[in-house]
């Protein structure tokens, strides 16, 4: 009797799952047929552009104590808003929600330190890069990790959805990953001694180390160098072309050097040069 009930329950659950998944897959054609709500003309008509940024990634996208958003990415976002002649509405995202935010039309443009990878290219469209970056490894100064081979058998902290997570998933070499949801959590975990190292974009670690002198970026570069670009929804040619032109134009004006000096320089140690971070030879 009881078994029968359990069986019924399972059948019912499977049936719902089936209904939900069929409903979810049967309708996408409809959505694609809809007009591009993030095209340049649609944004201008709306009068606001929705841009995804980080809220806890100093000095790229963060919030001052008076509640104002600021940082290297945010500075670019405001300039883009100005040049489009529209207001900017910031949507704060975490690393692993950047792709979905675009796909579900929650934002028009992502300027959240989004590193270009082949996997992500399949999901979103990247514009011309405005920064470059590699994965770096952070460890305690008293017990530094300077070679990849030292990581063997150790625990390494990463944030979900970052290039660092991806790198160590593909080249694990005996490394155990500890994954966290936000930047805040990952650094807290390191400070609390949950693992012996933390891997993230080196551009970000340089800044963090300046504030926390007991730690060091022992490995400055692991794997290949990658680029950071604005991203739009796949197929949004209108905004993609506009953003590409915008980046070329801003480069000519030396905008990114200004942005670097204003937003990044004060946060980096003296051993970091502008050419380590920004890309200025975009034609």
């Amino acid at each position: 009797m009881k078994l029968k009930k359990i069986f019924k329950g399972i059948v019912a659950a499977l049936a719902t799952l089936l209904i939900v998944s069929v409903a979810a897959t049967a309708l996408p054609t409809k959505a694609h047929a809809a007009t591009n709500s993030s095209s340049v003309s649609a944004i201008k008509k709306r009068g606001t552009i929705k841009i995804a940024v980080f809220g806890d990634l100093q000095p790229y996208g963060w919030v001052t104590k008076s509640g104002k958003r600021t940082g290297y990415d945010v500075y670019l976002a405001r300039q883009i808003g100005k040049d489009l002649g529209v207001k900017v509405k910031f949507v704060q995202v975490n690393a692993d929600s950047r792709v979905d935010a675009l796909k579900s039309n929650k934002v028009d443009l992502v300027l959240a330190n989004f590193t270009v990878t082949p996997q992500r290219k399949k999901q979103v469209s990247f514009a011309k890069p405005y920064m470059k970056v590699s994965v770096g490894v952070l460890s305690k100064k008293s017990n530094p990790i300077t070679k990849a081979s030292q990581l063997k058998g150790k625990k390494v902290i990463v944030t979900k959805g970052t290039t660092a997570e991806q790198y160590f998933t593909e080249h694990s070499n005996g490394v155990t990953l500890q994954k966290y949801d936000s930047k805040t959590q990952q650094f807290n975990a390191l400070k609390n001694g949950r693992a012996s190292a933390l891997a993230d974009d080196n551009s970000y670690l340089f800044a963090w180390v300046k504030k926390h002198p007991t730690y060091t970026v022992g490995i400055k570069k692991i794997g290949t160098e990658s680029e950071i670009s604005p991203a739009v929804k796949k197929g949004n040619k209108s905004l993609l072309n506009w953003t590409n032109k915008e980046i070329t134009k801003l480069n000519k004006k030396g905008f990114f050097t200004t942005d670097y000096n204003k937003n990044l320089k004060p946060y980096f140690g003296s051993d970091v040069k502008p050419s380590d971070i920004i890309i200025t030879n975009n034609k």
Binding site: G55, K65, N94, S97, S182, T184
Partner: peptide
Amino acid sequence: LLLISVMDVINVGQQIIEANGQRYENGS
């Protein structure tokens, strides 16, 4: 709610921790 970009109390808290980490080591 911070996972779906709602500016709830935890999300604001994390912004504050990150922005003030330099001056307040144990701000979290």
